[in-house]
């Protein structure tokens, strides 16, 4: 499988007067369709790494190649478009727009792409809500949904533009163990069904031990990188 995302010698330093180096020359590549977990203690730099992977943050040095494009040469507008098309985000705190319904939240990435919403697009959004099991509550405002439901909306939303990569930061961070299991099953199903690459930061060993690959970040460096033999 070709690499869908690649980091080359990524370093990240915060601050100007008092400099804190968070990442030290990280080299990583993720294969298309793989299911990866990134683990590490708080402050290890794993969230910074994910934000850099998602082009939400720029590295101090190094190259990020997403879908074959080096992000260094892209303008902020092109970067926004790349994010919109190629990357889906799932965050720990759901990050839905509370003013919008579940369905509208799912459609939002598509609307941002400024393409007209056709019946097919609407059907696809409904299908995604079906997959995450939220058909009944799709017209509820996000603010009126339970944590597990919101997280599933966020998952459906991350899939809306058929991104090649889904980045998830503690997607089950504040869910109970039953919901965690459901969310994992869902992510796996999507991984198999759409061939979507998943890169998941997690504290949850139940998620991490089921991933095809575990990358441990420690003090801004890759401490461990193991791939399941039969993955």
């Amino acid at each position: 499988m070709p690499n869908v995302m690649e980091l080359k010698e990524i370093t990240k330093i915060y601050g100007t007067k008092i400099q804190t180096q968070v990442l030290f020359g990280i080299n990583l590549a993720f294969e298309e369709g793989s299911f990866n977990s990134i683990i590490g203690q708080s402050g290890s730099g794993k969230s910074t790494l994910l934000n850099i992977l998602g082009s939400l943050d720029r590295p101090t040095a190094g190259d990020i190649i997403i879908n074959g494009k080096n992000t260094k040469s892209l303008s902020s507008k092109e970067l926004s478009d790349l994010r919109n098309e190629s990357i889906g985000f799932i965050f720990q705190f759901h990050y839905l727009l509370p003013e919008f319904t579940a369905l509208e939240n799912v459609l939002m990435p598509y609307r941002i792409s400024k393409k007209p919403i056709t019946k097919e697009v609407l059907d696809y959004a409904n299908e995604l809500l079906d997959i995450v099991g939220l058909t009944k509550v799709k017209n509820n405002l996000a603010i009126n949904m339970s944590g597990g439901q919101q997280q599933r909306v966020a998952i459906a939303r991350s899939l809306m533009n058929n991104p090649k990569i889904i980045l998830a930061d503690e997607p089950t961070g504040n869910l109970d163990s039953d919901s965690t299991e459901q969310v994992y099953e869902l992510l796996r199903k999507i991984n198999h069904q759409f061939g979507t690459t998943f890169i998941i930061i997690t504290h949850d060993r139940h998620i991490a031990e089921k991933a095809d690959r575990i990358v441990e970040i420690k003090d801004g460096r890759i401490n461990l990188d193991i791939t399941k033999a039969n993955a």
Binding site: I39, R205, A208, E209, I214, E216, N223, L224, I226, K228
Partner: peptide
Amino acid sequence: TNYYNIVITK
């Protein structure tokens, strides 16, 4: 046995 435990083993 469990491959996740390689993390703690290290």
